[in-house]
């Protein structure tokens, strides 16, 4: 027991040093005074924050606090919602993603997304992972096969499905489906992955697998995860942002948020006194 504890401490210490060095880095995403409306309802009330590269940032807060809406701004997924309008600036790698000339398709190739419920296409496992590549016009079979294998390996699914690539993705278990959706996202080689409560529909064992996966992936990717689960946020994220009623209440290193939050409101939420 004690040994484990020590190891964890060491790990945390390492993480902290890493983060300190990262702090001098440029932010991956920088958000300036963003406001969002659905018709007359204001869902986001002026949020500014920076998201660090190659780290996991968790968005927490009670239902309806705007955290999902906020997450979906980064790949412009709200564009198709009736009555959506926004103000403010969001820059990824220094370029404004809401400027007129941007191609949303290109942006979404760069910013992948994993959804709440596993949502594989009703096609084969292979076709699911190859989908993003095919729509970019890649037709070379060898290239497709190697990219699909690579993505499935990254998502820790390859060993389980390598003999069943032609089978329907719908035949997989819920946890496998979600890892397939992650593989599908990875195949396009984004640099940012948005995850909208990716484990809320899964059992604890599948959840643990996905959490391990997120931990591995952050070496290469910038990950933002929306979660309802406080333990999950504290387990996997480096930074945590607490949202309430469309506002960013507190944003800091996960350690700080969970051990000595600055605001009473945050403390009440993470200790389970409301929400």
């Amino acid at each position: 027991m004690e040994i484990v504890a020590t190891r964890n401490t060491i790990k945390t210490v390492e993480n902290t040093t890493n983060m300190e060095s990262e702090e001098c880095q440029k932010p991956k995403i920088s958000i300036k005074n963003v406001k969002v409306w659905y018709d007359d309802f204001q869902a986001i009330k002026g949020i500014s924050m920076d998201i660090k590269p190659n780290a996991v940032t968790a968005f927490i807060g009670p239902s309806g606090c705007g955290k999902s809406t906020f997450l979906r701004l980064f790949n412009r997924m709200n564009d198709y919602v009736d009555g959506f309008s926004m103000e403010g600036k969001i820059k990824i790698d220094g370029s404004n993603i809401y400027k007129k000339k941007i191609h949303v398709e290109e942006l979404r190739k760069e910013v992948g997304m994993v959804f709440q419920k596993p949502n594989p296409f009703p096609k084969s496992i292979f076709e699911n992972v190859a989908y993003g590549l095919k729509i970019q016009g890649i037709t070379d079979k060898k290239l497709l096969a190697s990219r699909v294998e690579k993505a499935l390996r990254q998502a820790d699914l390859w060993e389980e499905v390598k003999n069943d690539l032609k089978k329907s993705a719908l035949a997989l278990s819920g946890g496998q489906q979600q890892r397939l959706c992650i593989a599908r996202t990875l195949a396009v080689e984004p640099s940012i992955i948005l995850m909208d409560e990716p484990t809320s529909a899964l059992d604890p064992i599948s959840t643990a697998k996905i959490e391990d996966l997120i931990f591995e992936l952050k070496e290469k990717y910038t990950i933002i995860i929306v979660t309802h689960n406080m333990q999950q946020a504290s387990r996997i994220s480096d930074y945590t942002a607490f949202f309430y009623l469309g506002e960013l209440v507190e944003y800091n290193k996960t350690n700080t948020i969970f051990t000595k939050p600055e605001k009473k409101h945050t403390e009440n939420y993470i200790t389970g006194r409301f929400g």
Partner: peptide, 24 residues
Amino acid sequence: ELREASYGMGATKLQTAFKVVVPA
């Protein structure tokens, strides 16, 4: 959800319609 998955990978509405929605 199927549409969003497809948009999320950079597909246009047309690609999503013919490759995902119509087959489904």
